[in-house]
Design a binder for these strands. Sequence first.
DNA 1: GACTGTGAAGCCATTCACAGCT
DNA 2: AGCTGTGAATGGCTTCACAGTC
Lengths: 209, 209
Amino acid sequence: MKVFKIPEATVMRLSIYSRYLHQLMEEGEETISSGEIAKGVGVSSAQVRKDLAYFGEFGTRGVGYKVSELYCQLMKILGLDHRWNTIIVGAGKLGSALALYQGFFERGFNICAILDVNPNIIGNKLGSLRVQPLDQLQDLVEQYDIQIGVIAVPATHAQDVTEQLLEAGVKAILNFSPRVLKVPPDIVFRNVDLSVNLEVLSFNLALNR
Amino acid sequence: MKVFKIPEATVMRLSIYSRYLHQLMEEGEETISSGEIAKGVGVSSAQVRKDLAYFGEFGTRGVGYKVSELYCQLMKILGLDHRWNTIIVGAGKLGSALALYQGFFERGFNICAILDVNPNIIGNKLGSLRVQPLDQLQDLVEQYDIQIGVIAVPATHAQDVTEQLLEAGVKAILNFSPRVLKVPPDIVFRNVDLSVNLEVLSFNLALNR
DNA sequence: GACTGTGAAGCCATTCACAGCT
DNA sequence: AGCTGTGAATGGCTTCACAGTC
């Protein structure tokens, strides 16, 4: 399917460029140069051009890029030209916060359901959702045609939940638990490790002392 | 101060190794090889040894590493041999979730305070903390000798809050807002961009269709 | 003159492969 | 025999620099 391998760093920057372009559109900008994008998001202009070059030629030499056009192209490249159905497993503090976060919806992710095992919180209302029991997982994934699973359970249950998500047919997993998970290579997978991020800060703080 | 530049990827892995070693300690393991660590966290054994080699020689040839000893060394390298005082700005869903997340405390981060501008949530109780008004920032940073600031406010206020944190004397910032922030080069800084992470999933899902 | 698109060069991280210990 | 520590080789991302276009 993919002819050239795209660096992950490039994909992350494309996401950031697209958000910046969205902001520029709201401010009424019509065209922009790679140098201005670079300045806006804190990279080099060559980097911006190289990132875009993986996918085609979007600009006009001597002029720059049409903001709205480039934005649409990037959204298409990122697969955000349609919506993704998502389920959150774990309705503790973090899971609840993710379920209520508007930013996901705005960028094309529908949070279709949130699940937990704890009977004390099953039934709780979170915005327009209600926390449902974990054993509904398989049914909900089928019913809503869910592609993405988000793991927000304690480390000890993370691998177990992962396997349930895979069995239910989820194609991609975003893991917020502080545990290394085993997933088959055909599954799209990412970790967001909150502690690791704080610890990188700690490491750098400890250096300058 | 730092004689050799350490790759950020190495620092992130050290954090993961240390957590894995902690788990092994609880399971009662005494020694471990680079190959076993590698298997446990999903990297190559050469990678593990190279990462450790930046900081010294911690193992015994022919034998491996003493789990508890390596764990202590890594914690020291990561600057986790003492505690860091931390403040969270923004007590919305995400900020509240972060304030209540036990994992930070366990790894050596004291959440000393959480602030917001919204009068409707100022005074709310979050565990043992109470949400305080943003204008207390300067005082609290001094009072608690706070080194780390966590930004959990909407994108539109993120740069403003950043500058207030810097002015108050914070040395490191972890940014959860979906906005590129300008910070001076001597400040330790990291982004945790939730949308970007989901969008990388989306990109990869879109590839295989 | 301004700006894009891109091959080449440079740089950095990972993997390889083996010498050196136990 | 088993495993660490490490120089050398590899691979991949970023920067440079310039030809091409408006």
